[in-house]
Amino acid sequence: MSAPSAVTDQDRLDPPPVDDDGDGDGGDDGGSGGWWAASPPWAKVVVAAGLALLLVAVGVIGGIALGRSTAESYGPAEGSIDVGFLQDMTVHHGQAVEMAVWARNNTADPQVRQIAFDIESTQTAQVGRMEGWLTLWGRPLSPPAGQYMAWMGMPTATMPGMASPEDLARLRAATGRELDVVFLQLMLRHHQGGLPMMQAGAADASVPAVRALAQSMVASQSAESATMTQMLAERGTTPLPAPADPHAGMHGTHGG
């Protein structure tokens, strides 16, 4: 009877030798099973962990690259009616909110405080939606300098109805009834100036949600304009001259 072969614990754990060089001798490492089998356990753990981290890193880098490559083509293009309307109206709303916050904080008239609060809350929420869409599409939140209303075929440095720095200084310096009147006059003109842009967005934007938002702006600001006109009459004064309609003679430019 032949003597039993000595089998060590390491032999039970290691895989059979691998003939790396094809000469049938089990490789040139003395039959150890190759570099993987000959590696200590701690080295195998390190290699496996490193490979897993490498795969994760590749996935992350690939995801970022894919996101960047698709973001540029996702949603309406830069210069489109949708993007231009949202960019311009975000800026337009920003000034309305600024004036409304000042009036709400400084008036003693409950009616003025209420309409200022309504304008502030409504337009702040709308700005959030518009900036959210622009960010999702990878578009700037405002148009290039001097290019307001370019999407309507009439680029300008100042949108209709916007209060001038002098107007804003007059609002901040006013008190009492004068504050209320200046606020109502400036905000009414602000609404009137933005109306043609909102109408164009409601008629010609390609994204249904943008058209719906523009139409809701038309409805809410038309109602607020009627209320402010009445409030001015009740306070014995009249509105400022309305801004010129930028669409005058150009109604075929944007299709509306």
Rank of each mutant, 00 (worst) to 15 (best):
6 A>I: 14
8 T>E: 06
10 Q>L: 15
12 R>P: 06
13 L>C: 10
14 D>Q: 14
15 P>V: 08
16 P>N: 09
16 P>G: 09
20 D>L: 11
23 D>C: 04
23 D>K: 06
27 G>I: 00
27 G>S: 03
27 G>K: 00
28 D>G: 14
33 G>I: 00
34 G>I: 04
34 G>H: 01
34 G>M: 02
35 W>S: 13
36 W>T: 12
36 W>G: 07
37 A>I: 15
43 A>P: 01
44 K>R: 14
46 V>Y: 02
51 L>P: 05
53 L>H: 05
55 L>G: 10
55 L>I: 12
62 G>Y: 04
62 G>Q: 03
64 I>K: 08
64 I>P: 02
65 A>Q: 13
65 A>W: 12
70 T>F: 08
71 A>G: 08
83 V>M: 02
86 L>A: 02
87 Q>S: 12
87 Q>N: 11
89 M>E: 00
90 T>K: 00
94 G>Y: 02
95 Q>G: 05
96 A>V: 07
96 A>H: 06
96 A>Q: 10
101 V>E: 05
101 V>T: 07
102 W>H: 15
102 W>L: 14
104 R>E: 14
116 A>K: 05
118 D>I: 06
123 Q>T: 08
124 T>S: 15
126 Q>T: 05
127 V>Q: 13
128 G>W: 08
129 R>I: 15
130 M>K: 10
135 T>E: 11
136 L>R: 14
137 W>A: 09
140 P>D: 02
142 S>E: 14
143 P>D: 03
147 Q>L: 04
149 M>K: 05
149 M>P: 02
151 W>T: 01
159 M>P: 00
166 E>K: 10
171 L>Q: 02
172 R>K: 15
172 R>M: 12
175 T>S: 15
177 R>N: 07
180 D>V: 01
180 D>I: 00
181 V>G: 03
182 V>A: 00
184 L>E: 02
186 L>Q: 04
194 G>V: 08
194 G>C: 09
194 G>F: 06
195 L>W: 01
195 L>K: 07
200 A>F: 04
201 G>V: 01
203 A>Q: 03
203 A>R: 02
204 D>L: 13
209 A>E: 15
214 A>Y: 01
215 Q>Y: 01
215 Q>H: 04
216 S>Y: 05
217 M>P: 02
218 V>K: 00
219 A>W: 02
221 Q>C: 06
223 A>I: 05
226 A>I: 12
228 M>S: 08
229 T>L: 12
232 L>F: 03
238 T>G: 10
240 L>D: 11
241 P>A: 11
242 A>P: 13
242 A>Y: 04
244 A>G: 14
246 P>C: 07
246 P>N: 07
